[in-house]
Design a binder for these strands. Structure first.
Length: 289
DNA sequence: GAACCGTGGTC
DNA sequence: TGACCAAGGTT
């Protein structure tokens, strides 16, 4: 009647061989992977992570590079502000942490782009700290196996965090495996769309499955729009800037939003104030130096 | 708390 | 086909 042994055994048998899980992966490699994996699937992260690690094996290496290089090397992972924040992480680590990725959650939280999840994940996976890692996979596995509902609510609740905390084993080394094992189960078996309950090590214990897998019955989960959003325009502009060698002109950026100059300029201003774009001369822009 | 922030794959 | 989703964070 306990989730732990079956899930830990399942993980030992089915876990993916991902480079950031290797024993010889540095804390920096773990941090980079966790930021890249925010809202981005493993398959797309893999090649970019490998390139980053080869190019910038330590925070010091990235800190020496122009921020724009990080943004360009980010490629099409999406949410390019993450690349900028990773560059800011590198600078902060060099300046304030002797070039070493911080080990405690509290200190990790002070880094740009590092929130509750990433701080807990890095402290645990990179440094072996016993933390409570709660991501979308953990939330979904808990929602089904323990709470008996199809999906977690749109926002993380205190009750979920408390439950996750109770489930984390006391021994730090076991806690580390547990945290990654639950995430892996959510990623490979207990998936959002079509859960593969026949492959699940805790199917017999799962409250949701025992109840006949009732459909989601909670507050509506709004999906974000895309057509006609600023995000679409910003993305198109960043694609132009990544592809360019140096600076581009306003005319080069116009196709990103051909029918609305006002919005086009607003989006460009937004990118500049975000630090993703740098004005260099009259009407010329480039990725930040 | 709600809105915003990219991109591409999936069923 | 298109809505939904992916190891979230910031404002």
């Amino acid at each position: 009647m306990d989730l732990h042994q079956p899930i830990l055994q399942w993980y030992a048998d089915h876990r993916r061989d991902l480079p950031w899980r290797h024993d010889d992966c540095s804390p920096w490699g773990v941090l980079v992977s966790e930021v890249m994996l925010q809202q981005t699937p493993v398959a797309r992260v893999l090649p970019v992570w490998l390139e980053w690690m080869e190019r910038w094996p330590t925070p010091g290496d990235l800190a020496l590079a122009p921020a724009g290089d990080a943004v360009r090397a980010w490629g099409r992972l999406g949410y390019p502000r993450r690349a900028l924040r990773l560059h800011q992480c590198a600078t902060a680590i060099v300046e304030h942490h002797d070039g070493q990725v911080p080990t405690t959650e509290a200190t990790l939280l002070t880094l740009p782009g590092v929130g509750a999840y990433t701080a807990a994940a890095v402290a645990c996976f990179a440094h072996g700290e016993r933390t409570v890692v709660v991501d979308t996979n953990v939330r979904r596995v808990q929602a089904r196996t323990v709470s008996g509902v199809a999906l977690p609510a749109p926002s993380l609740s205190r009750a979920e965090t408390d439950l996750a905390a109770e489930l984390v084993p006391a021994d730090p080394a076991t806690a580390r495996v547990w945290n990654v094992a639950v995430m892996e189960l959510g990623a490979l078996v207990c998936t959002a769309r079509s859960p593969r309950c026949t492959d699940c090590p805790v199917a017999d214990l799962c409250v949701w499955r025992r109840a006949g897998r009732p459909p989601y019955d909670g507050p509506p989960r709004r999906s974000q729009g895309w057509e006609g959003t600023d995000r679409q325009v910003r993305g198109a502009m960043m694609a132009v800037l990544r592809a360019a060698d140096g600076a581009v002109t306003l005319a080069d950026l116009a196709p990103a939003c051909p029918d609305d100059e006002l919005r086009r300029m607003r989006c460009l201003d937004g990118l500049v104030s975000d630090g993703l774009v740098e004005p260099v001369a009259l009407g010329r822009y480039r990725l930040p130096a």
